[in-house]
Computed example of a mutant assay.
Amino acid sequence: MSGHHHHDFAGDRLIEAARDALVASGEQWTDMRADVFEALAGRDRPVSAYDVAESVGARRGKRVAANSVYRILDLFVRTNLARRVESANAYVANTHPGCRHDCIFLICDLCGKAVHNDDDKLTGALRLAAQAAGFAEVRPVVEIRGHCAECASGD
C-alpha cells in the first residue's frame, strides 16, 4: 500500500504522546480521560464504550456511566487519539496520535482483530471523488472485513 511513515507508540510512551496531543489541541488531560485512554490502549482489539466503562469502573472502584465514556471517546476521535471502527461501533487507540491521516481497517470476522493500514493514494482518491460530487468536510471510512492470516490458516 502506498502510504506514509510514522512512529507508532506503545505502553507509557503512547500514553505520553496521547496526553501531549490532547493538551496541544487545547483540551485538558484529566484523570478520567487518562483512565479511559489507558483502558482503550490496553486492549488489542476494538472495544465498545461499555467495555471501557466497565474497565474504568473496576479500576476506580465505582460505576462509570457509558455516556460519559462515549463523550470522552468522541473527544479522542476528534483529537486523533482514537479511531472508531464504524462497523463494530467500537474504538481503538491511535498508536500515532500526532499524525493525521485517513486509515483503512482490515477487520477479522472470526477473532475481531483490527489491523490499521495507511493508503493515502486510495483515501485521497475517495476524498477527491466526494469533493467532485459537492461534498465538503469529507472523512473517508474504509473497512475491509475478512479473515486475518492467523484465523485463515486454521480454516
Score class of each variant (00 low, 15 high):
E38H: 08
A41Q: 08
V138Y: 01
Y91P: 02
E27C: 09
G134M: 09
A49V: 08
K113W: 10
H147D: 07
V85G: 01
D12S: 15
H147E: 15
A53V: 08
M32H: 11
A41I: 08
I107P: 00
A58F: 04
S25H: 13
R100E: 11
G26L: 04
P97L: 06
L106A: 09
I15N: 03
L75R: 12
R127Q: 02
D12N: 11
D51R: 11
R127P: 01
S25M: 01
S25T: 03
T123R: 00
R139D: 02
H7F: 15
V23W: 09
L128N: 10
E27V: 07
S48T: 11
G61V: 09
I72N: 08
R63S: 15
A114K: 06
P97T: 03
V47L: 05
A39E: 05
V23M: 09
M1D: 09
A21F: 02
A65Q: 14
H96W: 06
P97K: 03
Q28T: 12
I104M: 03
A93M: 09
N89W: 01
V141S: 00
L40C: 06
M32E: 14
M32L: 15
Y70E: 08
W29Q: 04
V47Y: 06
H4G: 13
C99K: 10
A18D: 06
V92K: 00
V64D: 04
A130I: 02
G134L: 10
A66P: 12
E27G: 07
F135K: 13
G98M: 04
E38Y: 04
C99A: 13
A41L: 07
R139W: 03
D20I: 05
L110W: 11
L122M: 09
V47P: 05
A34K: 11
I104A: 01
S25L: 02
I107Q: 01
L126A: 11
R83M: 01
V92N: 01
R71N: 14
A136I: 13
G57A: 06
I104C: 02
N80C: 03
I107V: 14
S2I: 12
C108F: 04
V36K: 07
T79W: 00
E54R: 12
A53Q: 05
G98S: 07
D102L: 01
M32F: 15
N117C: 09
R63I: 07
V115Y: 07
T79L: 03
V85C: 04
V138H: 00
A34G: 11
E16V: 14
A24E: 11
L14Y: 03
D118C: 09
F9A: 12
N80T: 02
F135D: 08
D44T: 10
L75H: 06
V47M: 07
G154D: 13
A65H: 11
C111H: 05
R43M: 11
I104H: 02
H96L: 01
